[in-house]
Simulated scan of single mutants.
Amino acid sequence: MMSGWIIALIVIALIVVIGVWIIGIYNSLVGMRNRVGNGWSQIDVLLKQRADLIPNLVETVKGYAGHESAVFTQVTQARAGALAAASDPNATLEQRAVAEQQLSNAMVNLRATAEAYPDLKANQNFMNLQDQLRQIEDKIAYARQFYNDVVLKYNNRIMQVPTNIIAGMFHFVPAQYFAADEQSRQVPQVNFTNPAVPQVRF
């Protein structure tokens, strides 16, 4: 009789231990998933800040280099693509990353164009906008690194034994990294055959 109670207590104790273990892992995974979401939110805010700043920068450059229509068209289209991807609820992080990388590439060409105009580089408004943009891009780089580090930890966690069992039970899925493909990282070449009129090859 006594042994039956002992066995029952052991079974109950095991159930409690397993239950606490499952709850602990579940809460840990939820916390990590929330960190991933928070990391992405910070990137998203910064990307929108950059998009809001670009039109002012483009207009300032136009004031000195209005004939560089190809460069302005490229930046405008790239910005529109980035905003479209940002507003599309079905867009993947990879698609967002590609769109944002294309915008970054376009901004390289805009900066290269500005280099050909000394008066523009000395313009206080242009320098202020450039400084703001540089600060935002530095923050984006840091936030993206932080986000990808958090994603790596989270993905490793849900794939490791025995955590993967709990992750599978509660439908935790791997998070996407915020990284563009190699083709979108290729920056267009700028060839200054004439210092006053930069030629851009896409």
Rank of each mutant, 00 (worst) to 15 (best):
D88W: 07
K48E: 14
K62H: 11
I10A: 14
V30N: 07
V45Q: 12
S104D: 13
A114N: 09
A91R: 06
R33E: 15
G66V: 07
Q102S: 12
S69L: 09
V75P: 02
A85I: 11
R35M: 13
Y26A: 01
Q102A: 08
R96D: 01
L29G: 01
N125S: 12
F126P: 04
N27H: 10
L14G: 15
W21D: 06
A8R: 04
A65Q: 08
P118S: 11
I12A: 15
G37Y: 04
W40Y: 15
I25R: 00
V71C: 09
F126E: 07
R111T: 14
V17W: 13
V75N: 01
T76D: 06
I25K: 00
R79D: 03
I43Q: 10
P89M: 11
P118L: 11
V16R: 06
I25C: 02
R35E: 05
G81K: 03
S87A: 14
E68V: 08
N109R: 08
A114H: 07
S87H: 09
Q102L: 11
E68T: 08
S104K: 02
G39E: 02
G81H: 04
Q74D: 13
G24A: 09
M127K: 13
I25Q: 01
I23T: 13
P55T: 08
L14A: 13
G39K: 01
V58F: 09
R50I: 05
V17F: 15
A13S: 15
G37M: 05
Q42C: 02
N56V: 07
D119P: 09
K48Y: 03
H67M: 06
Q101N: 12
G63M: 09
W5M: 11
D44N: 14
P55S: 11
D52E: 13
V61L: 05
E115V: 11
A86K: 06
L53V: 03
T76H: 06
L110N: 05
N90W: 00
S28G: 15
V98F: 00
S69W: 00
Y26K: 05
A106N: 01
A97M: 09
V75E: 03
V61F: 01
W40T: 02
